[in-house]
Design a protein around this nucleic acid. Structure first.
Lengths: 231, 231
DNA sequence: ATTACTTAGTGTAATCAACACACCTTATAT
DNA sequence: ATATAAGGTGTGTTGATTACACTAAGTAAT
């Protein structure tokens, strides 16, 4: 650090909220801490930012060290900077969030000894988390609830090939609300952002559903038009 | 700062993007810097966060010191933490934004000597700003463009009593697009979030328009219902 | 092969919001 | 009184959202 900057320095961390959809449940990635404070508590994967790295790179590095997950595109959620949020002093944290598909993902496993383990945990029964991580989680859940309406984030959570029923279940879990099957299908198919495949689900008892893929090209075309007032 | 925190410290600042609507133009609040680096440049009001204050309080304090504006509710926009964004070392900044009504507001005037002056500047002809402040401004403009569709931010920018034409002009300026008068009025009035007053505009040549107020209670009721899929 | 079971898949009518589009009204200034 | 400039208003069309219930297809067990 060079010399003529004032001495108002703060310790600076990153916490990651990584969502996935598994067995009909929305889950997030947690670690069990191996360091004080909050040793042995469950927490969001998070750690300190180095002074020589940008915060986006720091987020990637930290997630990798604590969970073994690599190359996940995260976005900023919010900054939490209350004076009392860390028991040992002033620590400002940037929360990042991401939504990923589990299929093809390895089991999470910490690379650094900072975390004892890393694992997926259903969001509907979260235990108390370290620091203010419960608050951070709640804010990110609210964020994806809003975002699902105007952004194709739902598809990030599903396998590449999915059935309409799976897609509907995901919406229902995120919105915490039952949806009508016919209306849901009609609306989704009318958007024209799904590509119907010549494949069916494998290995299910009972009738197999048709599979679809998300068509990103069509999606981008569609959402370049803005909302309007009949201008 | 206490002792057993690691030494990954960063200098930490806040920058404010304050929008207002004046003379048919969208404007933001700028300062002329009185300190190196970027002495004499135009910049967003911004400064260092103290280690003993929360970031939201810091934002309020900094805005006051540099512009004399007090009690303005700002929200976080984004964090900018590239390694090279400050010429003297690693500085992470949190951008805050707010939209305010000019009527009843005093002329901005710095309280601290950090800024030579503070003033409103139209957003459609911004000069080059210090640091990465142009990028920060652009991100906040994008934010309010999106937000105007689902949040009553437009009303924050108008005087308490306003005409429908004023409201439409504001939408047109923010969205950068002409709107149809009849459709705009129909839609706005149908929302039922405007209260019609028994007053008319004063001091205009030509026919005076009816004045309206924003009805926050009705707005809140309306926007508790969520978007849906016919569930 | 028949049956039981479970999920996949489908259509219509009613209501409501979005859009395109052009003229008359009212207040003021001269 | 007349010119000017902004205020204010209505309708038909189109497309989206909603509510709602049955048949079709595949698998498993007998």
């Amino acid at each position: 650090m060079e010399t003529n900057l004032p001495k108002f320095e703060s310790v600076f961390t990153i916490d990651c909220v990584i969502f996935a959809f598994d067995a009909g449940k929305l889950k997030i990635l947690l670690i069990e801490r191996n360091e004080e404070p909050f040793k042995d508590w469950l927490a969001l994967p998070g750690n300190f930012v180095n002074t020589d790295e940008g915060i986006d790179q720091a987020a990637e590095r930290i997630l990798y060290e604590l969970t073994g997950l690599k190359g996940i595109y995260m976005e900023q959620l919010h900054i939490f900077g209350d004076v009392g949020r860390h028991p040992q002093g002033r620590v400002i944290t940037v929360a990042y969030y991401a939504m990923i598909r589990l299929s093809g993902q390895k089991e999470p496993k910490p690379v650094s000894s900072f975390a004892k383990k890393a694992f997926w945990h259903a969001t509907d029964m979260l235990p108390k988390l370290a620091f203010d991580h419960t608050k951070i989680f709640e804010k990110s859940l609210q964020k994806i609830k809003n975002k699902i309406f105007y952004s194709p984030i739902a598809f990030e959570l599903l396998p590449e090939k999915f059935s309409l029923t799976q897609l509907q279940q995901l919406y229902e879990v995120i919105l915490n609300k039952k949806l009508d099957k016919r209306n849901f299908r009609k609306k989704m198919l009318n958007y024209g952002i799904l590509k119907e495949l010549d494949e069916k689900q494998q290995g299910v008892s009972y009738r197999a559903a048709k599979l679809y893929k998300f068509d990103r090209r069509k999606y981008n075309k569609l959402f370049q038009k803005e909302l309007s007032f009949g201008g």
